[in-house]
């Protein structure tokens, strides 16, 4: 599988998850069970730099989701 197909597989997998928009790094490892976690981490972090994915951090833990999906910081204030 080429890098573009890897990216598409990640995007498609995340889009399929209903009701969940932010994921642990380990959830991405499950998409590529035959690869080393370090390799998957590099791809995921590259996709963040490219603006496809984005980080969400509580301060202690980091989650990753599709950019723009779910709660955003500029709308968080407006939520009731």
């Amino acid at each position: 599988m080429g890098p573009e197909e890897d990216r598409q597989l990640i995007v498609d997998t995340l889009k399929k998850k209903k009701g969940k928009t932010k994921f642990y790094l380990k959830d991405f490892n499950k998409i590529f069970p035959d690869r080393k976690p370090r390799e998957v981490k590099k791809l995921v972090n590259k996709m963040v730099t490219e603006g496809i994915l984005e980080y969400w951090s509580s301060g202690s833990t980091t989650l990753i989701g599709l950019k723009g999906a779910g709660k955003q910081h500029d709308t968080e204030e407006k939520d009731e």
Binding site: T49, E54, W56, S57, S58, H73, E76
Partner: peptide, 9 residues
């Protein structure tokens, strides 16, 4: 609130 989507590029 708990955390958020902020960071530097």
């Amino acid at each position: 609130k708990h955390g958020g989507i902020v960071g530097v590029f």
